[in-house]
Computed example of a mutant assay.
Amino acid sequence: MTVSYETAKTQLLDAALLHVPFDGWSEATFKAAVSDTGLSPTVARAVCPRGALDLAVAFHKRGDAAMVAAVKAADFSQMKFRDKVAAAVRFRLEAVTDKEAVRRGATLFALPMHAVEGARLVWGTADDIWEVLGDSSDDINWYTKRATLSGVYSATVLYWLGDDSPGHMATSAFLDRRIDEVMQIEKIKARVRQSPVLSRVLAGPNWLMGKVKAPTRMPKMDFPGSWTAPRK
Results as ranks from 00 to 15, higher is better:
Val68Thr: 13
Ala70Trp: 02
Val71Lys: 03
Lys72Glu: 13
Lys72Gln: 14
Ala74Trp: 03
Ser77Asp: 06
Met79Val: 03
Lys80Pro: 02
Phe81His: 11
Phe81Trp: 12
Asp83Leu: 04
Ala86Thr: 06
Ala86Cys: 06
Ala86Tyr: 10
Ala88Asp: 06
Val89Cys: 13
Arg90Leu: 09
Leu93Lys: 02
Glu94Arg: 05
Ala95Ile: 04
Thr97Ser: 12
Asp98Arg: 00
Lys99Thr: 05
Lys99Phe: 08
Glu100Val: 15
Glu100Ala: 14
Val102Asn: 01
Gly105Arg: 02
Ala106Trp: 12
Ala106Met: 15
Thr107Ala: 14
Thr107Leu: 11
Leu108Gly: 08
Ala110Val: 00
Pro112Val: 01
Pro112Phe: 06
His114Thr: 13
Glu117Phe: 08
Glu117Pro: 00
Gly118Arg: 06
Gly118Tyr: 11
Arg120Thr: 15
Leu121Phe: 10
Val122Trp: 13
Val122Pro: 02
Val122Phe: 15
Trp123Tyr: 15
Thr125Ile: 14
Ala126Arg: 02
Ala126Trp: 10
Asp128Ile: 02
Ile129Tyr: 12
Val132Gln: 00
Val132Arg: 00
Leu133Val: 01
Gly134Pro: 09
Asp135Ala: 05
Ser136Gln: 15
Ser137Thr: 11
Asp138Met: 01
Asp139Cys: 11
Asp139Ile: 12
Asp139Thr: 15
Ile140Lys: 04
Tyr143Ala: 02
Thr144His: 08
Thr144Pro: 09
Lys145Tyr: 14
Lys145Phe: 10
Thr148Leu: 15
Leu149Pro: 01
Leu149Ser: 01
Leu149Lys: 00
Ser150Asn: 09
Ser150Asp: 06
Val152Asn: 08
Val152Asp: 07
Val152Gly: 08
Tyr153Thr: 02
Ser154Met: 15
Ser154Leu: 15
Ala155Trp: 04
Thr156Ser: 13
Val157Asp: 07
Leu158His: 09
Trp160Ile: 05
Leu161Thr: 02
Leu161Ser: 05
Leu161Tyr: 04
